[in-house]
Amino acid sequence: GATAVSEWTEYKTADGKTYYYNNRTLESTWEKPQELK
């Protein structure tokens, strides 16, 4: 079936920290989303 993983994109900030952005909800988070675990 369809999965929600594709909504999240992993980015890195200029200082090398990783964060996650959800293209559907426009939410961003420092925590790894449940969908990616």
Rank of each mutant, 00 (worst) to 15 (best):
K37T: 14
T25D: 02
T3K: 05
Y20G: 00
N23S: 12
Q34A: 15
W8F: 02
T25R: 01
Y21Q: 06
Y21M: 07
T3I: 14
S6L: 08
S28N: 05
K37W: 11
E31M: 06
Y20Q: 00
T18L: 09
R24M: 10
S6Y: 09
T3F: 11
V5M: 12
E7N: 06
T25W: 02
A2E: 13
Q34M: 13
G1D: 13
K32S: 04
Y21T: 07
K17Q: 10
N22W: 01
T13D: 12
Q34K: 09
T18H: 04
K12I: 12
E35Y: 07
K17M: 07
T18S: 10
K17H: 08
K12Q: 10
G16A: 02
T13R: 04
V5H: 11
N23V: 10
G16L: 01
E7Q: 06
V5L: 14
T13Y: 03
S28T: 15
Y21W: 10
T3M: 13
V5T: 12
G1L: 14
N23A: 10
E35Q: 08
S28L: 15
E7F: 08
K37Q: 14
K32F: 05
T25A: 01
E10L: 05
K12R: 14
K17E: 08
L26A: 12
E10S: 05
T29I: 07
S28E: 09
E27P: 00
K32A: 07
V5A: 14
L36Q: 05
E35L: 05
A4E: 12
Y21V: 15
K12V: 12
E10N: 02
A14I: 11
N22D: 01
T13N: 09
E27M: 07
E27W: 03
N22K: 01
T9L: 08
S28Q: 13
K12D: 02
E10H: 03
D15T: 08
T18D: 03
E27I: 07
G16R: 01
W8M: 00
T3D: 14
T18I: 12
A14R: 09
G1S: 13
S6K: 08
T3Y: 05
D15F: 05
S28K: 15
D15S: 09
A4K: 09
A2L: 13
S28G: 11
T18K: 06
Y20R: 01
Q34F: 11
N23W: 15
S28D: 03
E7I: 06
T29V: 13
G16K: 01
E7D: 12
S6E: 10
Y20D: 00
N23I: 11
L26W: 07
G16Q: 03
Q34S: 12
K37D: 14
E31S: 06
L36T: 06
Y21H: 06
R24A: 08
N22Q: 00
K37H: 13
V5F: 14
